[in-house]
Every structure is written in structure tokens, then in C-alpha cells.
Amino acid sequence: MSLLKAIKTISVGVAEAGDPVAVLFATVTQTSPIKVNVDQRLTLGSDFLIMLDHVRDLQQGDAVVLLRVQSGQSFIVLGKAADA
């Protein structure tokens, strides 16, 4: 590996480590199989969602809180968002 590629690889790793997770809000658009919509621009299906035991009874229209895992390839559904 060249020095330039090594520096780029290290830079990407440092940048990702600086933002290991992100908190997102989404709306359940479908329940079987589960789909949620984040900010009306990104729809995530069951392949990308990690469901915790206590949030298995979601219904269409429910607001949920998600944690984006560092790689951005999976999202943990923390639970329903409380009404404000």
C-alpha cells in the first residue's frame, strides 16, 4: 500500500470514529415487514433495522427513535418517541 493510500485510510477511520453514532427520528410506514421513513427522504426496511424486544409492537404512524451504527449500514430502533 502506498503512503498516500495509507494516509487516506487512516483519515477515513479517524473521521468515522469522531461520529460513532447518530440519533435519528423516523415514522413507521409499514409493519409487516417493518419499514420506517427518516426525514421523508430515506426509507429503511427490516434488513437495516435492529429491533429491541420492547419495540416489537409498533404500528403504522408511530414515531420512533433510531441510533445509526458507525458504519451506517444498520440502525437500532430504541423505542417509540413520546408525544411532545
Rank of each mutant, 00 (worst) to 15 (best):
A81Y: 08
L58D: 01
M1R: 13
F75R: 03
L3W: 08
K8R: 15
G13Q: 14
V21Y: 11
R56Q: 13
G72C: 05
K5F: 10
R68H: 06
R41L: 10
F48V: 06
V65N: 03
P20N: 03
A17P: 05
T29H: 02
R56K: 14
L58R: 04
L78F: 07
D53G: 14
F75M: 03
K80C: 04
L3S: 11
T43E: 05
E16P: 04
A22V: 07
L4A: 14
D57I: 06
V55G: 07
L52E: 05
T9P: 09
L3I: 09
I7E: 15
M1D: 14
A26C: 02
I50Q: 05
F25P: 03
V14Q: 10
G79P: 09
V77W: 03
V65T: 08
T9N: 14
K80D: 01
I34K: 05
V28G: 02
L4W: 08
K35D: 02
S32I: 06
I34D: 01
S2K: 09
F48D: 11
V23F: 10
T31P: 04
R56F: 08
L66T: 01
M1P: 14
Q73E: 15
K80S: 03
R68S: 11
G61Q: 03
Q59C: 13
F48P: 02
K80H: 08
S32C: 07
P20D: 02
T29W: 01
S11Y: 13
N37S: 10
A63I: 12
V55P: 10
D53L: 09
I34L: 10
T43I: 09
A15P: 07
F25T: 13
S74M: 10
G18M: 12
R56H: 09
F25E: 12
I7G: 11
D53N: 14
F48I: 04
Q60N: 08
G13A: 11
V55D: 12
R68E: 07
D47V: 04
G45D: 03
A6I: 12
Q60P: 12
S32H: 09
G13Y: 08
K80P: 04
I7R: 15
P20Q: 03
S71D: 12
L58N: 01
I76C: 07
T9Y: 12
K35V: 03
Q30Y: 04
R56E: 08
F75L: 06
S46N: 06
R41F: 05
S46T: 02
V36H: 00
K80R: 14
L44H: 01
D57G: 12
F75T: 00
V28H: 00
D62Q: 05
A84P: 15
P33F: 01
G61K: 04
Q40Y: 06
V38L: 01
L52Q: 11
T43G: 02
I10F: 13
V36P: 00
M1A: 14
V55Y: 08
I7K: 15
L42W: 09
D57T: 10
M1G: 15
A63S: 15
L66F: 00
K80E: 04
R68P: 07
